[in-house]
């Protein structure tokens, strides 16, 4: 297995997806704004889609199923982004901030 034939190997894609997932988790934990967390969630969804497509290409008997599943993940992600961003805008209008530390009603 040489470096140049990595694209024909299932594990390459799995490692890549794991790294992207890790980046998404890191961003989700450390980001202080709602939009930053949304961006990290998109990274996690992309990692999940890469896993689906990799198994679809290398092991699944019917290679249409994974592609259809990835298309549905895309549709759900688009809906999630639209709803999430309008919630962010509504929060911003009420609190004048989208920092997660500022979004508290109670003192404490």
């Amino acid at each position: 297995m040489s470096t140049l034939s990595l694209y024909n190997n299932l594990n390459t894609f799995l490692y890549l997806a794991a790294l992207l997932f890790g980046m998404g988790v890191y961003g989700l934990v450390t980001r202080r704004t709602l939009i930053g967390m949304l961006i990290s969630a998109e990274l996690i969804l992309a990692a999940a889609s890469i896993n689906f497509m990799a198994f679809n290409r290398f092991t699944a008997p019917d290679p249409t199923v994974g592609q259809i599943f990835t298309l549905f993940i895309m549709a759900i992600a688009a809906a999630e982004a639209a709803i999430g961003l309008s919630i962010v805008l509504a929060v911003y209008r009420n609190y004048k901030s989208i920092d997660t530390e500022d979004l508290v009603e109670l003192q404490g």
């Binding site: 980046m23 890191y26 019917d62």
Partner: peptide, 28 residues
């Protein structure tokens, strides 16, 4: 956060490394 992400990534990579995935014949 870095430690959390590192543990998750490491776990996923080890799991991918140690699992044998059966390869089935394509129907289309």
């Amino acid at each position: 956060g870095f430690i959390t992400a590192g543990i998750v990534t490491f776990g996923l990579i080890v799991m991918a490394l140690n699992t044998k995935f059966p390869i089935l014949a394509k129907v289309n």
